[in-house]
Design a protein around this nucleic acid. Structure first.
Lengths: 119, 119
DNA sequence: AAGAAATATCAATATCTGTTCATATGTAAA
DNA sequence: TTTACATATGAACAGATATTGATATTTCTT
């Protein structure tokens, strides 16, 4: 008999989803999430989440090589997670928009909510 | 000469960040994002984003083996991205909370904003 | 123009991860 | 208990990915 009670979804701007995401959309979204799924890349994004930061300064602040940071920035830029602007010799990167900042800060909040993770 | 104009951050509930995330926090957050970074796993989460779904039904709806879905659900569950409740033989999974739903729907919105991705 | 400084790219490797197939566990009916 | 159904787990392989070190490109200074 097993009846399942359908749960009402709490009111939210972007929910329920307007349309079922296509295969291509899902792939792009996953690819973007995947970029956030690397600690080094996440550190890079966090470093320039609220203020523009030069590549070298980012590298120094997270203790990584410039080569590595540049590699990752390229990926982050391609996914529009960050945007860079040249200021003479240096390129200043920052989170692309507050949309991105929101996703990251939300996830930080979620992870800090309770957690045990390692099980 | 090179002066950098500091950009004011738009007002937001979770921003600016209360505290600089620790190494451990970053790792957990990255790990959680990483889980969303696989198309199959994302499909699974999407399948039960708004309504509880049995494992078999999820597998069928995304055209994947039950074994694979179960493997992924285990990971999603460990990260508290989904929660499952047993209903006799079947286990119904759903997104853990609206926090998660929000992150996913936000990213879908971001990906759909404009994009070129493949470059 | 030559040199320095900052960033970007290339190639190679060591590691990780998604998937499959087989099997085990749990649950309910006969 | 046996049978059937739903889900979970284990081992192993193929493909992907982060990192490094060297080098190239871009931009400014002298």
């Amino acid at each position: 008999m097993a009846l399942i009670k359908p749960k009402p979804v709490p009111i939210c701007e972007t929910l329920p989803l307007k349309h079922k995401p296509t295969e291509a959309e899902i792939f792009v979204v996953a690819e973007t999430f995947k970029l956030l799924g690397d600690p080094t890349r996440l550190k890079i994004l966090l470093a320039c989440l609220e203020k523009p930061m030069a590549v070298g300064d980012i590298a120094q602040s997270i203790d990584a090589s410039q080569s590595l940071v540049s590699h990752h920035l390229r990926l982050l830029r391609a996914a529009r997670l960050v945007k860079g602007t040249r200021q003479s010799k240096q390129v200043y990167y920052e989170a692309d928009d507050h949309h991105i900042r929101h996703i990251v800060s939300d996830m930080i909040a979620h992870a800090g909510e309770n957690d045990a993770d390692t099980e």
